[in-house]
Write a protein that binds this DNA or RNA. Structure first.
Lengths: 341, 341
DNA sequence: CTGAAAGCGCTAACAT
DNA sequence: ATGTTAGCGCTTTCAG
């Protein structure tokens, strides 16, 4: 049973290899009788065609690369994990394999490009990674790829799928305002600063529409290259003469760390400061208080990503810009200020 | 630049394809001059050999399958995530690709077997999944595989890498005893019941060595097929006439859920009940109280797994049974009982 | 040291 | 409907 080939099967069934190949691929061109006979032999012998030959011939690998951010501190992939689940499920039903990579440095970039040129995969999905040079190369070669939650410019140049940050920020802040908060802070990533216009705009517009003033000191950029990011930013936010009664965190990670930080300071959440997050990560229901957040269906996001890439890989039409909507998940980190609007 | 083949390179360099192949694979058999010339052309053209051909010829795919438990509720892969990171890093430096799968049902099992027969991978690592039938098939075919944290019997039949549960349980309970606890509960999985002897034994021995009595009602099996597992078990544990002052949780997940549950009940942790966990998951430092736990270096575990599988795949000697040791990570979920030992 | 040529296992024209 | 055969792109004997 070691090394059966299509030729062996053909011989055993008394037909040509073509016939076997057709049966294997469910193609027309063989009589029902032949098909049955061949299929029977295949089943009996447990024959499975060599996958590499198939890929070599078809010049397609039925595999996609998923590029992840190599994670520095563990929290960072809670989001990607769920997206991956979605990608994984969808890829399975689409008959694709998925293999992971990272592109942290030059070496890894060329490794990825080599893998692509070597035809290891037919497409690539970037999750939270945007590597300008790699993307340009891919574009130049017309190689199918999709950026998921990468904060790339929405100019239609790069196909992307991301959270509707504008809307999420807008609604989160409006929610805080509704709860009576008028002193609102904002914790956002320092990365991709130029691309955060969406979130920023949502925040600003919500403030304006709620007639709430904007205090620059309460807008803090979170530095990532340290353990427990957001701690620093929170410290700065609280260093002024007055402090916000609520803060919108562009990620639940920030919210979790911020909550931990202010708690350590002796402040109570949400009594002294309320927090609303974004993403709805696994940790969010385990913190105390549990984090109220704008949740995203990350698994669906993954499925959608894979489905979109599939379309690209198969020359079907696809939406170059797709936004995931969010849902408010009320937990315990936002208090209502009596007498509020 | 689309479809350069080794033949093109050979022509351009004025040599045979053999020479190019040798250069590509760094094999002896070409003069330094030729090597240089060929290499130059390769670099100029950016030629990358087709990966499938190589795999077809060598009859090896330089790929490994990683089988994960399809996760029902999100918490369950916090452990696997870190292990994956390790596998991923090690595989990269070993020149292997890794592709993911699951074997939840019959269909998926045969998909995996087909992939293996089709030579998609040279080995497989199971993480927290033990599928008897699949394992038997693999064994019958002498196909390299390794079980990571699968709770398989340690009879040497199946190569495994897991946490040293006996030691972890033993030390956790001893620690509780040292802290003055004499009423100790135990939360353990209901899955793989027959394989939990290690943990059970560690628990029992520690109890005995600490001269602490064992109360059956405080030993609860955690059911998994519900959201927030451990809640149920905790409820049962507290339903008796007296309750433990501390409980050892066979997973931080249980600890997190148990803490949340008792907190909701109005009990305080660790004042009323202390908890010590196992694994040191991401959530563990975000719960309140943060969970004191027996930590495992999961990333290293992943690297070790990949390295071991590599040895198996390449006919090198390997340890069939490997245990990861744990480290006590003291956080805030265990209190000291005054007057204790 | 180098090149011709025979595969690796399968797909798909092209005949029959 | 079925069989023949020429590749797919590379590795690897085996002569030269």
């Amino acid at each position: 049973m070691e090394k059966l080939t299509i030729r062996d099967i053909a011989r055993m069934a008394g037909v040509s290899t073509t016939a076997v190949s057709f049966v294997l691929n469910g193609r027309a061109g063989v009589s029902e009788a032949t098909r049955q006979r061949v299929q029977a032999i295949i089943n009996e012998t447990g024959f499975t065609p060599n996958i590499h030959t198939r890929r070599l011939n078809l010049k397609r690998s039925f595999t996609v690369h998923v590029v992840l951010r190599q994670y520095d501190f563990s929290l960072f992939n809670l989001f990607a994990m769920d997206v991956l689940t979605g990608i994984f499920r969808e890829s399975k039903s689409l008959g694709y394999s998925v293999i992971f990579t990272s592109v942290e440095n030059e070496a890894e970039c060329s490794e990825l490009m080599d893998a692509i040129h070597g035809k290891e995969a037919d497409g690539v999905i970037f999750i939270q990674v945007f590597h300008e040079k790699v993307v340009q190369l891919l574009q130049a070669e017309q190689f199918p790829f999709l950026c998921v939650d990468c904060h790339v410019p929405r100019d239609g140049t790069v196909p992307l799928l991301e959270v509707d940050y504008y809307d999420a920020a807008y609604r989160a802040v409006r929610y805080l305002a509704q709860k009576g908060h008028r002193d609102i802070g904002f914790l956002i990533s320092d990365r991709h600063a130029q691309f955060h216009r969406q979130t920023d705009a949502g925040f600003d517009d919500a403030l304006r529409d709620s007639c709430v003033p904007c205090r620059p000191q309460w807008l803090q950029r979170v530095i990532h290259n340290i353990p427990q990011p957001a701690t620093n930013a929170m410290e700065k936010m609280l260093s002024g003469p007055s402090r916000p009664t609520a803060v919108f965190c562009a990620s639940d990670t920030y919210a979790a760390n911020a909550i931990r930080y202010v708690t350590k300071l002796g402040l109570r959440a949400p009594e002294d400061i309320s927090f609303i997050g974004l993403d709805d990560l696994v940790i969010s229901e385990y913190t105390r208080p549990a984090i109220t957040t704008m949740g995203v269906d990350k698994v669906r996001m993954g499925r959608l990503a894979m489905e979109t890439l599939y379309r690209m890989m198969n020359g079907q039409p696809f939406e170059p810009i797709q936004l995931m909507s969010t849902t408010l998940i009320e937990r315990d980190s936002v208090r209502t200020i009596p007498g509020g609007t």
